[in-house]
């Protein structure tokens, strides 16, 4: 149908025979083995750490070494976690947290960030890729340099603006406003990078496709909507994932605008509280919460590999 998908089809066709008669002269299996071994050794600490994390989530204390053989394992931490409890079973009094609400809140923030980032950066990415205007290069440079400003210091100012705008918000809308503000503020941090990625995506689409539409008399906005957007779908998907992850793991914005200003919790603030003071914390619950926190993000990564590759590959091409 479109040129890109036809190109992709052709590439796939090229790939097939290479699997049979390897043109790349080195047998892939052997390369894989050697590299896997090397990377495995380099990544040994990581394997060890995450093994410990997952085992700890089932153990009666936080593991660190040989104690993985002596610890008592059970499903108790997970059960406690889903009941929203932060303490070991021996403690007769619990700090209750409603995990379902917490997960829902996390999804609202992450989903909201994803939507805002995708809309804003598919629009802007197109302009930077396809339109000639003054300050285009300077603006791109400026966008990447914004990253030099530490988020913690930015937070004070973002909060000041929040406080000032609060006066014009009716009491009944407050909670939705808090969510909206958190989402917009957090999304804005992602937008500069997303514009860069999205621009690269549009760069990959041949001009001919767009020209034919424009010659037929369609406006640019129409062309963008009808012709180009369908072709950057993989990019949109990948971008959404990146943005979703950013919203999912955000701590400082969520902490201030939702947790402090409204006692609305997300998974990240939940874990923050679970570890809390390391002097008295019951860490296996934190390990279970950490594992639970990893799962969706990891699944996202694995299931969206293909689209992700498309973004990154095209994304940062000049």
């Amino acid at each position: 149908m479109s040129l890109v998908s036809r190109l992709r089809l052709r590439r796939r066709r090229v790939e097939k025979p290479t699997a049979l008669h390897d043109v790349e002269t080195i047998p892939r299996r052997r390369t894989t083995l050697i590299l896997a071994l090397a990377l495995g050794i380099a990544g040994l600490p990581l394997i060890l750490l995450y093994l410990i994390l997952i085992l700890s989530s089932f153990a009666n204390h936080m593991l660190s070494g040989p104690d993985i053989f002596t610890a008592k394992y059970s499903l108790q931490n997970w059960r406690l976690l889903f009941e929203g409890k932060l303490e070991p079973a021996a403690v007769p009094l619990y700090t209750f947290r409603d995990l379902l609400v917490i997960i829902l809140n996390t999804f609202i923030v992450a989903g909201g960030v994803a939507v805002v980032v995708v809309v804003a950066s598919t629009l802007a990415g197109y302009a930077f890729s396809r339109m000639r205007f003054r300050g285009r290069r300077g603006l791109m440079e400026f966008l990447i340099l914004l990253h030099a400003f530490p988020g913690v210091a930015l937070l004070i100012a973002v909060y000041a603006i929040y406080v000032w705008t609060l006066k014009s918000i009716p009491q009944s809308m407050l909670t939705s406003y808090q969510f909206l503000y958190t989402i917009l503020a957090r999304a804005s941090l992602e937008i500069p990078m997303s514009i860069w990625l999205m621009k690269g995506f549009f760069d990959k689409i041949p001009w001919e496709v767009e020209w034919s539409a424009l010659v037929d008399g369609a406006s640019r906005i129409k062309t963008w909507w009808r012709i180009l957007l369908p072709q950057v779908k993989p990019g949109i998907a990948a971008l959404a994932i990146f943005a979703f992850l950013a919203g999912w793991e955000d701590l400082i914005y969520v902490h201030v605008f939702l947790y402090v200003a409204g006692n609305i919790k997300t998974l990240a603030t939940f874990i923050e509280e679970a570890i809390g003071k390391i002097e008295t914390a019951y860490l296996p619950i934190a390990a279970a919460a950490g594992t639970l926190y990893l799962l969706p993000t990891l699944l996202f990564f694995i299931f969206t590999q293909k689209t992700l590759l498309e973004t990154m590959g095209g994304g940062v091409k000049g």
Binding site: Y159, V260, E273, G276
Partner: peptide, 22 residues
């Protein structure tokens, strides 16, 4: 609202929340 852990974080959050009357 009872929080687990130390009071310092709560106190800092009190300062922050005070600006927004929360």
């Amino acid at each position: 609202n009872f929080r687990r852990g130390g009071g310092d974080k709560l106190a800092q959050d009190f300062e922050t929340a005070f600006q927004a009357n929360k």
